[in-house]
């Protein structure tokens, strides 16, 4: 159904692919336009990667898991009915993968790879290359980042996923509710608890936080 819609109304070439909404891109892809998926990949590779890296608790394997998210999206593109947004659909796939991965890790008794590798050293997650980390970061920033990562990792799963979706993707609570399968008020409540926990875990930065506000 979706493919027919794409063939009739969404012929490529009229509007540049990069300016088309996600739903059109997915429809174009389902009708055989591989480049349309390339645009979707470009839009979501970074937020999905960061969501997966923090939610799975296995930053070193985040790239593999992110790749898996997009491969599953490719396989299931034809099943997308347009009942939710493409972003919501992608995050649902990512969330399910992360939950499975965490479960597998617990089953195998792996320690979280976001934990420091040896004593007080940086975690594997922190050692990932990052363009966002400038060379002139202050020591406070570096320390704060490490502490935030640890605090986020320590959040309960249901609070962490809500916090990440809101913080990374700036997703409205209604959509987050769709992704995690809970009511909007429940999602807001989880977000509130997550923020209060974070604030407690980072209490020594309270003055700094007040300056940042």
């Amino acid at each position: 159904m979706f493919g027919k819609l794409a063939r009739k109304n969404l012929r490529p070439g009229r509007v540049p692919l990069t300016e088309r909404p996600d739903e059109e891109l997915l429809a174009l892809f389902s009708s055989g336009e591989a480049d349309a998926f390339g645009v979707l990949l470009e839009r979501y590779r970074r937020p999905i990667f960061n969501f997966v890296a923090r939610h799975s608790g296995d930053a070193p394997r985040a790239e593999d898991l992110t790749q898996e998210v997009f491969l599953r999206a490719i396989q299931r593109a034809e099943q997308f009915r347009g009942e939710s947004k493409v972003s919501t659909w992608l995050y649902k796939i990512a969330r399910n993968l992360c939950i499975d991965h965490r479960r597998r890790m617990r089953h195998r008794g792996h320690a979280s790879l976001d934990a420091p590798t040896n004593g007080d050293g940086p975690s594997l997650g922190e050692r990932l290359p990052s363009d966002a980390r400038g060379a002139h970061e202050s020591l406070v920033d570096e320390d704060l980042r490490a502490r935030i990562l640890a605090a986020v990792e320590a959040l309960p799963d249901d609070q962490r996923e809500v916090f990440l979706l809101r913080q990374i993707e700036n997703m409205p609570f209604g959509e987050i509710a769709d992704v995690v399968g809970a009511s909007e008020n429940t999602v807001k409540s989880r977000m509130r608890y997550a923020l209060l926990r974070l604030r407690e875990a980072l209490s020594e930065y309270q003055d700094y936080a007040s300056e940042l506000r």
């Binding site: 892809f29 055989g32 336009e33 591989a34 998926f37 390339g38 990949l41 590779r45 970074r46 990667f49 960061n50 890296a53 923090r54 930053a59 985040a62 790239e63 992110t66 790749q67 997009f70 491969l71 490719i74 396989q75 593109a77 922190e126 990932l128 290359p129 990052s130 363009d131 966002a132 980390r133 920033d141 704060l144 980042r145 935030i148 990562l149 986020v152 916090f163 913080q167 990374i168 923020l195 209060l196 974070l198 604030r199 980072l202 930065y205 309270q206 700094y208 936080a209 007040s210 940042l212 506000r213």
Partner: peptide, 30 residues
Amino acid sequence: DALALARHLPVDEPSRGMDAAVMAAARRKA
């Protein structure tokens, strides 16, 4: 306070190597 601190959550960049494999699969499917 918590929201101000949360803005410091690190944002990482995945490598481009991942894209090639995904796009190869996308081209096959397309």
